[in-house]
């Protein structure tokens, strides 16, 4: 068994997620921009910060009236905390070790999560007083609070620094949230053998000992039974188009050719599943079900999808419908 292929994979949305926040969260974020902490009062008199659109206990709708909103803090009390030794720079508010704490702002009945910039874990204590350290440039996100900082006993509560006034500025209605997740993915045994085959100009599949059916580019099982496809079988690099689609939408992927182009399912000779490929070498309106095609291999073969550039007509007579009707 050869070592399975691994590759780096990043899940990320360019520019970040765009979320509409609604009037209640929007009120809180607008407050942050103004350098204030805005909470909501529930019908039972509980002051919830950060505010929710519902009473966390009864789920009754709240925040429908201006009078429901109250200002809390900005000073608050730490109710629990952790010292973050392993910082995730770029994702977390600070790039050096800090504390995450639940902080109950003065006048609130709930606590909010915040990063506390302290000198070390020995400077942290449940019950300690903290205040927001506001950024000057605030734009209505949680990061408008750079961090919370310890408030020495008797010290005055600092005001948020004034930010440049923007004429006619609207309340915050949305946030753009960057998300990035990093992975190392493993192809697994069957896919690794398939990819190694591509580097040799071969299409490798497999079948289970309990079946004659061959699956090319399988994930290691007979999808009908779940049995491992432990017997390796090479299939032909040619076959018949079972069904196809003429793509007229440009820019679907960086790999896609100029439109119009054809993507098709191809039943390879010797296989019992269809193979996905691009059809070139003829006009798009010449492509048809049953058309015989063969792989156009790249000059340089590699263990990845770039080894097969596309599929082109062989000129053989079309396959009869009966031969592929079970694979459409």
């Amino acid at each position: 068994m050869s070592e399975a292929f691994q590759s780096k994979h990043v899940l990320e949305y360019p520019g970040g997620y765009t979320r509409s926040v609604g009037p209640v969260i929007g009120r809180f974020l607008t407050g942050l921009r103004d350098g204030r902490l805005v909470a909501v009062r529930t019908p039972t008199g509980k002051v919830v910060v950060p505010p929710t659109e519902y009473d966390p206990v009864t789920s009754e709708s709240v925040g429908g009236a201006d009078a429901d909103f109250v200002e809390v803090g900005p000073a608050g009390t730490v109710t629990t905390w952790t010292w973050v030794h392993k910082v995730r720079p770029g994702k977390q508010p600070l790039d050096h070790p800090f504390a995450f704490a639940l902080i109950r702002p003065d006048g609130a009945d709930t606590a909010m999560l915040g990063a506390v910039a302290a000198s070390g874990p020995e400077a942290m204590q449940t019950g300690m007083r903290v205040v927001p350290h506001w950024n000057v440039n605030r734009n209505g996100t949680l990061r408008d609070i750079a961090a919370w900082v310890p408030l020495p006993e008797g010290a005055a509560i600092p005001e948020a620094p004034a930010r440049p006034l923007v004429e006619g500025e609207a309340p915050v209605t949305g946030v753009v949230q960057p998300i990035r997740l990093d992975y190392t993915v493993t192809a697994g045994a069957a896919l690794t053998r398939y990819l190694e085959g591509l580097a040799q100009g071969k299409i490798l599949g497999g079948r289970s000992p309990n079946s004659d059916e061959v699956y090319a580019a399988s994930r290691g099982t007979d999808p009908k039974t779940g049995d491992p496809t432990s017997i390796e079988v090479e299939v032909a690099d040619r076959g018949a188009i079972t069904t196809f689609c003429i793509v007229n939408i440009p820019g679907l992927s960086a790999l896609a050719p100029p439109v119009p182009f054809v993507s098709a399912h191809i039943l390879l000779d010797g296989a019992n599943n269809t193979f996905f490929g691009l059809i070139r070498g003829c006009e798009v309106d010449e492509v048809r079900m049953g058309m015989r095609v063969k792989a156009k291999w790249a000059d340089v073969l590699k263990p990845d999808h770039t080894s097969i550039l596309h599929w082109e007509p062989t000129g053989e007579p079309d396959a009869p419908y009966e031969s592929y009707k079970d694979y459409i």
């Binding site: 950060p50 973050v84 995730r88 994702k91 995450f100 999560l113 990063a115 949680l142 946030v175 949230q177």
Partner: peptide
């Protein structure tokens, strides 16, 4: 996603 993820506490932090 609104109040917690922007600060990205890890699950061990929480």
């Amino acid at each position: 996603p609104y109040y917690t993820i922007p600060l990205w506490p890890s699950t061990s932090d929480m």
